[in-house]
């Protein structure tokens, strides 16, 4: 029963974070939301009995790729931020 509630909450959060990442005009918020999608997905993989995939997604999807996005954002920070 508890796992069903967690899965429903994860589903809602993943979809909300994905829509926010695509629709927001603030690039920092968009990058953080994309990282959040990966983090929620990695929790979901644990429920799908895939611990290896969960570890990879948590380390790479929400860790390293967010860092690379921020390096690029800092590099191209200029007049247009829309």
């Amino acid at each position: 029963m508890l796992s069903v509630i967690i899965i429903i909450a994860l589903t809602i959060l993943v979809l909300a974070a994905a829509i926010l990442a695509v629709q927001t005009t603030n690039l920092v918020v968009a990058v953080i939301s994309a990282g959040l999608v990966s983090l929620m997905a990695s929790v979901g993989y644990l429920f799908l009995s895939a611990p290896d995939v969960a570890m990879t997604e948590a380390a790479i999807g929400s860790g390293l790729s967010t860092i690379i996005f921020f390096y690029v954002l800092n590099r191209v920070r200029g007049k247009d931020h829309g």
Binding site: P51, D52, A54, M55, T56, A59, I60, G63, L64
Partner: peptide
């Protein structure tokens, strides 16, 4: 156990970050 070359490599890279 869960883990392996790809995960360990990513963890090392995040330490470098």
């Amino acid at each position: 156990s869960p883990g392996g070359g790809f995960q360990g490599g990513a963890i090392i890279a995040s330490g470098l970050v």
